[in-house]
Write a protein that binds this DNA or RNA. Structure first.
Lengths: 197, 197
DNA sequence: TCAATTCTGTAGTGGTCGCTAAATAATGTG
DNA sequence: CACATTATTTAGCGACCACTACAGAATTGA
């Protein structure tokens, strides 16, 4: 994947992963437009040309940080066991992650890039696609549950998937607004009551 | 409330309400940071000095547009009848409003100002307070329902209020991502299954 | 008609935006 | 050592940011 150039020339003076982590937190907390390159300089301790040399542009930096977020802080539906348990764990895990101390509140994907200037429209496509994939993943899990008899035939799996997706997105909003971990867990519990009987 | 100055001097050449409506739509669609004063000039047909003369600053313009949104496009819980019906209608009305053709998708309050640069932190306070008041309104309605016996004693009204609030917020995200009115209504239907029995 | 008042359009202000050319520093290779 | 290569630093690019001084235009009151 990564073409590592032979070690000619002056070596990097920084750890690329640590820098990307700081960049991720800045974008996570302040969004794309709310994070300036000057902000990133302050967050990383690097100067602009180092950032640009290592990553390319502010937009690439954002997308790279977003992928890192997805792989480091993202959650996946457990593929085994009852779908009900998988969804339930998914919601509780989101509640915990959105209120993790030492990290920005909320989710870098669920509520990202919802309103941008026209010039930055393209930045929103990747986060939107990630949200769409989350919905599709939930729905697939629910469809399987219907096929296996865990959920009744005729269950509106699309609507149910959108509901649990909305719960995640709403938890992100409320975490940003200061909701505690306990409150988010209670929300998750209340949401699971919507599971069909 | 409004101190109307006697009609001395050159009169306004524009309708203040129509201009504020255009401003509201711009902020609604592109957010605070995503909307520049140049954008507002294009949206209103006015020049900056007219906007500043009539309203004061970009931030005041945003807050004024936000209040207008709340009073023109906001929804309130119907205070009479069963709480279950009031919440249900609230969700369906949100589904319809977030997918109203001719208006930006989503909600100008539910998913507003979630990530801003540090310099603009103060802009987020009013939208956050509006969301908090919505949650409080829902919870109050649920508390009354418990007191009147519509909901069982011991119902976690706080968690249930947060759930319905999250559904609204998630519907706003999904509307922005392109969900149809029908899909949002289905989401609302699925959410009502969480109502305690 | 003249003066007072208020609004509009022109033409900027200083500041920040994302980004980069050019000089310098630090490494490996010969 | 010299040289090629790559990274960092300095300094600043043009474009846009929110905002405004100022002059002219349009109105009312005297």
């Amino acid at each position: 994947m990564e073409m590592r150039k032979p070690s000619r020339g002056r070596p990097r003076s920084f750890d690329e992963d640590a820098v990307l982590d700081a960049v991720m937190r800045a974008f996570w907390e302040h969004g794309y437009e709310g994070t300036s390159v000057a902000t990133l300089e302050a967050a990383t301790g690097l100067k602009a040309p180092s950032l640009y040399g290592a990553f390319g542009s502010k937009e690439v930096l954002y997308q790279t940080a977003l992928e890192r977020y997805a792989s480091e802080h993202g959650t996946v539906l457990r593929p085994d066991g009852p779908a009900r348990d998988a969804i339930s764990e998914f919601l509780y895990e989101a509640a915990d992650q959105f209120s993790e101390s030492g990290l920005p509140p909320g989710c870098m994907v669920s509520t990202a890039a919802l309103a941008l200037g026209t010039a930055q429209r393209g930045v929103a496509t990747r986060p939107a696609k990630m949200r769409s994939e989350t919905l599709a993943g939930i729905e697939q899990r629910l469809r399987t549950a219907v096929a296996e008899g865990e959920l009744p035939d005729g269950t509106d799996t699309g609507a149910l998937a959108r509901l649990f997706g909305a719960v995640i997105q709403g938890m992100s909003v409320q975490a940003i607004d200061g909701a505690t971990r306990q409150e988010l867990r209670g929300l998750a519990t209340a949401a699971m009551a919507a599971w069909p009987r």
